[in-house]
Amino acid sequence: MKIAVVLALITLAEIAIYYIPALASLLIPLLVAFSFAKFMLVILWFMHLRFDSRIFTRLFAAGLLLTLTVFILMLLTFFLRGGPAPTPPGIT
């Protein structure tokens, strides 16, 4: 129950900072941090990873970390050279 209250509060905070202009420069890091917090709360408590076998944690973490690594690398190969197909062709 406590976890649920925390989750609700974080969501409220997320929306709040979206509308506070003073925090504009911090917006993305803050949002990512909040999102990460919610993510961890759900998997650790709601999905019992905190109390359950380490094997489950490893299975899930393997997929999650692989996803992060591989797709960050992939997106880097695009954005280091200016994003997707920067010169759309005129003719099809």
């Binding site: 591989v70 992939m74 190969t77 695009f78 997707p84 197909a85 759309p88 062709p89 099809t92």
Partner: peptide, 17 residues
Amino acid sequence: DPAAGADPLLWQHLFWL
């Protein structure tokens, strides 16, 4: 579809991943 500004290299990345 490159005509819509999409990048065909995305396919190559996902495919070879």
